[in-house]
Amino acid sequence: MNDADPLPDLDPLVPSTARVYDALLGGRDHFKPDREAADVFLSMVPHAREAALVNRDAFLRGVQYMVREAGIDQILDIGCGLLTKQRTHEVAQEIDPEVRVVYVDKDPMALTHGRALIDTGQTTTVVTGDLRDPSGILAHPQVRAGLDFERPIGLIVWMLMQVAEAEDPDGIVATLMAPLASGSHLFIVTWPDTGDPAQRALSQACLETLGNGWARPVDRVLKHFQGMPMVEPGLEFVPRWYPGDPGREVPSAEDLKPFERTQIAGIAVKP
């Protein structure tokens, strides 16, 4: 581990987003409070585990699109969580072995495991950073060393649903996008509020266990993308979201199960 990039303190008595998500996905890197929080999610959204898996599938499609279709060869993945399986760099480097990935997270377990498992310092780096401090992420020496800001970057922003309105989620995204070159891609998966009870139950479960987590109206979520052009099919429920393949046959929104309507995804391109 780089001594100049210390780990945050680990509190095993307080559940964390990364570890609760790992518990929902059937991983092994979590503590009792994380499992208890996952149980709350499952009690309020019985198919929360399936929702997490559907979300993961959409994430993989987004990375594949950026690398294969858009030619992105460097990715900044903020809020990456526990890097246990189907990691961004693995998905990207299956298509292009030269893709560079910088992971950013503040969860000490995610950072420890990431550095032990995949931080090569060559094509893949794991650094300490907080989405709520976008300027700090951009100024991080390993971020600056790992990515060429003169060329397009694929920016993946997780956890915007856990940023309160008072913390200015749009301003965070704007700060992150400002120094990126034309042709950079912004990829977001988050929670919509279209009035579906399952969406609000997911938000409530997160608020009760982690203290944050807000489903937002789709028009509000769209503002995260800063008015930039969207890749088809735009902002869509994840089972219906196949970027760059607008002609694909997908189920109607009405035919989706409630848990399949708890997440939406989109990619925008900086002009």
Rank of each mutant, 00 (worst) to 15 (best):
D3Q: 15
V14R: 11
A18W: 10
V20F: 07
Y21V: 04
Y21T: 05
R28M: 13
H30L: 11
R35M: 14
E36P: 15
D39L: 15
V40A: 08
F41P: 15
M44V: 06
V45Y: 10
R49A: 12
A51F: 10
V54W: 08
D57M: 08
A58P: 01
A58S: 13
F59T: 01
L60H: 13
L60K: 08
A70T: 05
I72R: 04
I72T: 12
I75W: 08
D77V: 08
D77Y: 08
C80H: 14
C80W: 05
L83H: 02
K85P: 00
T88H: 06
E90L: 11
Q93R: 15
I95D: 14
D96W: 06
V99S: 13
V99C: 13
V101C: 14
Y103P: 04
P108L: 08
A110S: 13
T112Y: 06
G121M: 06
Q122K: 10
V126S: 02
D133H: 05
P134T: 07
S135L: 14
S135H: 13
L147S: 05
D148A: 03
F149K: 04
R151S: 11
W158C: 02
M159D: 10
E165M: 04
E167Y: 00
D168V: 05
I172P: 13
V173I: 13
T175E: 09
M177W: 02
M177C: 02
A181Y: 09
L186F: 15
F187V: 09
I188S: 06
V189M: 14
P192A: 12
C206R: 05
N212D: 14
L222E: 10
P229A: 07
M230L: 15
L235A: 00
P243Y: 01
R248I: 05
P251R: 05
P251Q: 02
E254V: 00
Q263M: 15
A265L: 06
A268E: 04
V269C: 07
